[in-house]
């Protein structure tokens, strides 16, 4: 088994999830509670990666971070490196690609928090930010966990975007799914079977955990 690729995928998925929690949770809050009329546009943009072919997304990201683009130029000036075909570039693409997998469950969980509890907190003189931290997040915890797990799993298995943005550099951008593709291409079916089985097992475990969380098989709050 290509442990190097597995380890790279795990690192990529973990970093993506952490960034998505920092970016996606505030975005989900805005989507759940904003009354702006153009909110639907933001929702549509966030959901785009669900329907867009990964190659299309990857293509645009590649253009956007290339050395001649403003983003790429700025990055080069700041770090001296380049985004395409690097781990950082891959990370950026993964965050965009998995955005809906964080935002949608979290936004749904926020929307599911009884509005009256939020208003009760406000009327008790507690600020919006503190209310978010003390009431909304604890009550939406299962949804936030679901979003994190789904984003992790989704990044673990991404292929098209990685190929477009990262290429196939061992230890830098060769993730598990690309490794499997390589193995099949070189007719090494034994290794491909092993790695695939490993990915299948992980995906199943993650999804089972997600559904268990949603059904609250495990009590989130201690019973009394």
């Amino acid at each position: 088994m290509d442990w190097q690729a597995i380890w790279l995928s795990v690192r990529l998925a973990a970093s993506t999830t952490v960034i998505l929690l920092m970016v996606g949770v505030p975005l989900a809050y805005w989507i759940s509670f904003s009354r702006r009329r153009w909110k639907f546009l933001v929702e549509a943009v966030v959901a785009l990666p669900l329907v867009l072919p990964p190659t299309v997304l990857g293509f645009y990201v590649l253009l956007a971070i290339g050395p001649r683009s403003p983003v790429g130029a700025l990055y080069a000036r700041l770090t001296g490196g380049m985004l395409p075909f690097s781990f950082q570039g891959l990370l950026l693409a993964s965050v965009l690609y998995s955005l809906p997998f964080t935002v949608q469950p979290v936004a749904a969980a926020f929307a599911g928090v009884d509005r009256k509890l939020v208003e009760a907190s406000w009327c008790l003189g507690v600020s919006r930010a503190a209310t978010f931290r003390r009431v909304i997040v604890p009550l939406a915890a299962p949804g936030i966990a679901t979003g994190a797990i789904l984003s992790f799993a989704h990044t673990m298995g991404e292929f098209g975007v990685v190929l477009m943005v990262g290429g196939n550099i061992a230890g830098v951008t060769r993730t598990v799914s690309i490794s499997i593709y390589d193995q099949v291409q070189s007719l090494d079916y034994g290794a491909a079977t092993e790695t695939s089985l490993f990915l299948l097992a992980i995906s199943f475990a993650v999804l089972a955990a997600t559904y268990a969380l949603q059904r609250r098989v495990w009590a989130i709050w201690p019973a009394n």
């Binding site: 009256k116 009760a120 907190s121 406000w122 009327c123 003189g125 009431v135 009550l139």
Partner: peptide, 30 residues
């Protein structure tokens, strides 16, 4: 003025107690 600045306590019809906090924490909340 936002509710926080008015300091007008509001008792909801179904009380809107925080379900994840026990009685003591609910009362001590604010």
């Amino acid at each position: 003025l936002p509710p926080q600045k008015r300091r007008a306590g509001f008792l909801f019809q179904d009380y809107a107690l925080f379900p994840h906090l026990n009685v003591a924490y609910n009362i001590a909340y604010a």
